[in-house]
Design a binder for these strands. Structure first.
Length: 424
RNA sequence: GGUGAGAUGCCUGAGUGGCCGAAAGGAACGGUUUGCUAAACCGUCGUACGGGUUAAACUGUACCGAGGGUUCGAAUCCCUCUCUCACCGCCA
């Protein structure tokens, strides 16, 4: 959520930045300012009237103590008439505040100066590239065929017990996933991230705090009976750990990592996007989150990108890093880098990580603040990134490392997996 | 699922109608003392939104789980809701 004083002081910049993000309803900006004007005017009116009533009420108390009943009675009627004025003002104020808030949450975060213009994924800018795309042997096949051949994943079983998009991993497929989770978490903690295990269902306030609600309501599974949302990413519980907290500046930066399953309804997805492991309703992911001083967030973003890059490199996968254009970025992000790895058998890039700086956008919603010295609390900056999302990594490992007689396991995973190769 | 208790500031915890934004203790922070540490002593120690100011000072309003009500006046009385805890039942 953007901050109203900032909008008021930088209206032109806000409009320009929102345009870069391909945001259409620019009229909302003026609405915010008008509603804020109204709010201030009504606040002043209410406060002044209430101040009068309060001081009269105090006098009544004193008069009563002195036994001056008649004087007290006349004051009472004065206060009553003030209070009658107060009611409608208060109602109008509450309505204005609610409308202001509802308008404010419709505004996405402003993209940073580094964000390239553009509307579609084609406009994203490649910032780095690494690894080699392997030449596959003659009979190379996509991961869904390999999964079957080596008995690693059973999509039909998933269909049976849950539905499409819920694969069942088994045997060495399950073990390889577990190996990756172990390796990713160990790698993250070795770099100073503290490991957390968090709930996979969260309440409405949490969904709201990180920005999934209200706008992406339809993307989350919702348990109606208990009014809880299944998390679409560990970002939600991890970041909300600090909701409504005022941290000390010495607490910063906070660095967290956690493994969770992620649940996404993915309504409207179809075709080759959902084949095999490409897009699932449930998948595993290891996430990193940082809560940092606002002066440090871009430095930290680079650090996190480098961190994820090391991980992808270690897996020996061909990758590229994209800086997302304005139109392709998420609602709350100020700058996002996507990591894609190349799926050689499908001949396409698959997104495996997204690293974003939210600046104060989530912090403002979730009221995550810090205090330095004796100063006033101010909003932190929050960042998060996948390190990494597992299914597409698994898909690429299977496809890219396949040979005529088996699938090679990346060196770094071998100690966790317990073998260097998957063979028939 | 049943029964009972409770929700106050960073924490513990007092406060049953005006003198309460809220006692006391602890923690934390600053200082004095000290060879260092500890102790002791002094001080500071909520948030939001307004007004005001170059900035402060200063000042108003709101907030004692949330919402509503009674009253001239509510942390305190009433109603509704939410959550937490304890015990019982069931269960990993």
């Amino acid at each position: 959520m953007l901050q109203v004083p900032f909008i008021r002081q930088n209206k032109d910049l806000v409009l320009e930045r929102l345009t870069l993000k391909n945001f259409k309803e620019l009229g909302l900006v003026d609405q915010v300012i008008e509603l804020d004007d109204k709010r201030k005017k009504l606040t002043l009116e209410y406060d002044e009237t209430k101040a009068k009533a309060n001081s009269l009420s105090k006098e009544i108390g004193k008069l009563m103590a002195q036994g001056k009943k008649e004087e007290a009675e006349s004051r009472k009627s004065e206060v009553t008439s003030l209070n009658e004025k107060l009611h409608p003002i208060n109602e109008e104020l509450a309505a204005a505040e609610k409308l202001l808030h509802d308008t404010l949450v419709k505004l996405p975060n402003l993209p940073s100066a580094l964000v390239p213009p553009g509307k579609t994924p084609e406009d994203n800018v490649e910032v780095r590239k690494g690894g080699d795309i392997p030449a596959l042997h003659e009979g190379a096949v996509p991961h869904w065929d390999l999964a079957k051949k080596y008995d690693l994943i059973d999509f039909e079983l998933g269909n049976k017990i849950s539905g499409a998009g819920f694969p069942v991993y088994k045997n060495r497929g399950a073990r390889l996933q577990r190996a990756m989770i172990q390796y990713f978490l160990n790698y993250n903690t070795s770099k100073g991230y503290t490991e957390f295990q968090v709930p996979h269902l969260v309440n409405e306030a949490s969904g709201y705090g990180t920005g999934q609600l209200p706008d992406k309501e339809g993307q989350m599974y919702f348990v109606t009976e208990d009014e809880l949302y299944l998390i679409p990413t560990a970002e939600v519980p991890l970041t909300n750990l600090f909701r409504d907290e005022i941290l000390k500046d010495s607490d910063l930066p906070v660095k967290l990592t956690g493994y969770t399953p992620c649940f996404r309804r993915e309504a409207g997805s179809y075709g080759k996007d959902v084949r095999g492991l490409n897009r699932l309703h449930q998948f595993d992911k290891v996430e990193v989150v940082q809560v940092v001083h606002p002066d440090k967030s871009y430095e930290v973003l680079d650090e996190m990108v480098a961190h994820v890059e090391e991980l992808v490199k270690a897996l020996e996968l061909p990758y590229r890093i994209l800086r997302l254009c304005g139109g392709d970025m998420g609602f709350g992000s100020a700058l996002t880098y996507d990591f894609e790895v190349y799926s050689t058998a499908q001949q396409r890039w698959l997104e495996v990580s997204s690293v974003s700086n939210f600046e104060a956008f989530q912090a403002n919603r979730a009221k995550i603040r810090f205090k330095d010295g004796g100063g006033k609390p101010q909003l932190v900056h929050t960042l998060n990134g996948s390190s990494l999302a597992l299914p597409r990594i698994l898909a690429c490992i299977l496809e890219n490392n396949q040979t005529a007689d088996g699938i090679n396991i990346p060196k770094v995973l071998q100690p966790y997996f317990g073998a260097d190769k998957i063979v028939l």
